[in-house]
Design a protein around this nucleic acid. Structure first.
Lengths: 209, 209
DNA sequence: TTTGTGTTGACCACATTGGTCAACAGTGCT
DNA sequence: AGCACTGTTGACCAATGTGGTCAACACAAA
């Protein structure tokens, strides 16, 4: 993806990528319209098909690009020396928000691709998943398990529930913050992180020793 | 809606309603396909347009039906004597799940209608909202405020955050339960309520006195 | 001048759209 | 029997939208 569009100025490149991501995150593959993509990206029909052989080709290249981006962006922000799971989850949530600021629909897109597989031939999805998805999922799993100090938790019997509560709360909070992005044009991350910390304090009090 | 389809046997009626709800919750108004609706409902094209004058008519009737259903189903399950807010939220979540069991996409549908208003003429949305939505929203608001004993909360400064945590947790939990509905064909509500209570116990421990 | 790259949008054959309508099956009334 | 009525069908329609092509143009480098 990045290499295919390497000759474009990056502003136009992002317009194409975001327009395609938006369309594919809004509609399943067959209903997604290349006409809409070019219209919203502000380019001509011909140009899109100059860079990509077909709609299917665009879709697959997009998946590769997105998963790579997510992998790099997230893994670079997680420190494997950090043993406090709640801090890691916080870092993860912040990383997600930073990505969503530049590419607003990336997560919706990738969730749609791998959950709601009607979008394309199932075999193709699995092939793509094998190509890009496994590392990504392994990394996500590592965040919750690798070198984590579970002894911080107050009640060993309910650790999984505790984790769910934290995760769900921070996710919903960040979703809510992101939904304000249309009104102001950019996010005030200091403020957002402060809010995150307030929720984390309440939760730590509840589930940590 | 109910009166229009009153002569149909209720099984066919539900098939039509659910099929239409699903299509409109999946796609915005213009992209929703009446062909899909009739195909999934297992009826002919002619029959749908025998009961409804147009796609727009079907859409509006559907909104009225859904909001009425939600209003009746929820308000009948909330007791205004109950002063414990967390118990009320629990009742609300359970009511939602019960509805989702019979009409799986009702909530997605109604959220889509009123948030993502591109779906139809904005004026029409507001008119419909005035017709059906106001009572519904008032009721939802009452659940969180009317005759609630806030003195149960440990820390008066963070009540809103506490409420958010509870709400978000129970919602995500119930979403997760509902997503298992495809595997088993029906929900074991006793088990689900037991799970809900486990989460509530953890949360009550810190946010209530 | 020639070659190459980025770019356009009119154009194509075909699929899908919302909606219509003549026809038919069945039921019940006269 | 005939008549009226309701529920139901699916072939059909004009209109719009589809993914994809291609000849042509602009501009820069050789």
């Amino acid at each position: 993806m990045e290499d295919i569009l390497k000759n474009l100025d990056s502003e136009k490149k992002d317009r194409i990528i975001n327009s395609a991501i938006e369309e594919f995150s809004l509609y399943p593959f067959e209903k997604a319209s290349t006409n809409n993509i070019v219209k919203n990206a502000g380019i001509s029909k011909g140009l899109l098909f100059h860079y990509f052989n077909s709609k299917q080709d665009l879709y697959e290249k997009l998946i590769g690009f997105v998963i790579n981006k997510l992998y790099n962006e997230i893994s670079s922000k997680i420190s494997w020396e950090e043993q406090d799971l709640l801090e890691r989850i916080k870092k993860l949530v912040i990383a997600k928000m930073k990505i969503s600021e530049k590419y607003p629909n990336m997560f919706d897109f990738i969730v749609k691709v791998f959950s709601h597989k009607k979008a394309m031939n199932v075999d193709d999805v699995y092939e793509l998943y094998g190509k890009y998805g496994i590392n990504f999922e392994t990394m996500l799993n590592d965040i919750y398990t690798k070198n984590v100090d579970y002894s911080l938790f107050q009640n060993p019997d309910e650790i999984q529930k505790d984790i769910n509560i934290v995760q769900w709360t921070l996710e919903k909070y960040s979703e809510q913050m992101l939904s304000t992005i249309s009104e102001e044009n950019t996010l005030n991350f200091d403020k957002i992180v402060a809010g995150l910390d307030e929720y984390l304090d309440i939760l730590k009090r509840t589930i940590y020793k």
